[in-house]
Design a protein around this nucleic acid. Sequence first.
DNA 1: GACGACATACCAACTAGTCGGTATGTTATT
DNA 2: AATAACATACCGACTAGTTGGTATGTCGTC
Lengths: 211, 211
Amino acid sequence: MENETTTPPAKPSARTKILEAALSVIRTKGYSATTVDDLCAAAGVTKGAFFHHFKSKDELGVAAANFWAEMTGALFAGAAYHQPSDPFARILAYLDFRIALLGGDVPEFTCLVGTMLQETYDAIPAIGAASYASIEGHADTLAKDFEAAIALYGSPGCPGAKSLALYSQAVLQGAFILAKGQGDAAIVRDSVSHLRRYLCLLFNKPEEIQL
Amino acid sequence: MENETTTPPAKPSARTKILEAALSVIRTKGYSATTVDDLCAAAGVTKGAFFHHFKSKDELGVAAANFWAEMTGALFAGAAYHQPSDPFARILAYLDFRIALLGGDVPEFTCLVGTMLQETYDAIPAIGAASYASIEGHADTLAKDFEAAIALYGSPGCPGAKSLALYSQAVLQGAFILAKGQGDAAIVRDSVSHLRRYLCLLFNKPEEIQL
DNA sequence: GACGACATACCAACTAGTCGGTATGTTATT
DNA sequence: AATAACATACCGACTAGTTGGTATGTCGTC
């Protein structure tokens, strides 16, 4: 019935099943340690189907990064955190939304493209580039709210919108790494609360600090 | 002259050469994509030597994490940033030191254990645990300065020393990931300056903010 | 002459990728 | 509307090369 991807097909095609499997398998095992057979088994398709849709494992990697960008792009675009009319309130709501996304086990809330970028930036530049593009694309949506917040509440010497947006992503990515060491999301929550405190101090909103 | 590893040998033994090779090769290619042959070639030793010193590739991974902890532990313990008598000044000096360490290409300044933790936390828990222990051990040395700084300058509601130390590591780890996407260290410098600004705001040291 | 530190040769298992084949459309011509 | 020509989606056995790991040999030193 409903369907809105780039390609016209409407059924749970093998391609989509492989892509969806890739999101979870690669986040758990990493890109290099994930075999094509792993992906096929998780997706419930055969190797023939895999290589029908993707020329190589690396091409699947690039497609997975783009698929991730589409999925998360839609998720964030449709989220309620855009509702506040005040841009700083939207930023705080964004952070709350990131916290709300932390359900489930570690591989379920960590970032596919952060993981892939780390592994592939040197050996498989195409995957690294697609992964970074996904992160930067997301940061750019955040940067718009920062831009507006700076215009309203920024003091002289305030860092730029893009810089703040990228820093926010760095904090999240770093927290995900530590979460993998600790086995749960506590450190992500803690790191986001530091980030929130920083932004409140920076934009002179002391009343918003505690949560 | 000096030597303090688990084994007594003092010459550039095969074991040491393999460990040193591991630091650079794994940071470049990632753990899974690094083959034992890669390591042997980079170290200039044969496979026989490799398996003489390490029972398996995974054992080398654990040893590399511990080796990294020793190396970086010595580097930071011997650094000049401990000199200031004021604990907050020591923290700022620590951040400056992290910036000073950013020379060279991306694989040369990024963190081995952050990379390995990301890849191995689920599939090879021993490596993940050793990697996280290295990060946490480093954070603990930082936490001491935070403890003292909080005692001197902390306001009510100030986050704990350990939390601040771990957050600092998360910022660095996340910035390293983005640096891999951008191809240089600029984002690390930028992220550290955000962290510095946060700490200055938190500890009420506005005069230290800009650099 | 025994033992630790390495070298050389080798293997079994696994991996990405191929290839011939089938089933199910789609399109166009008659 | 029937049919020929072609395209798309998928299957699963196969292969060539790679990988972690082993077995055995050599050499220097205590």
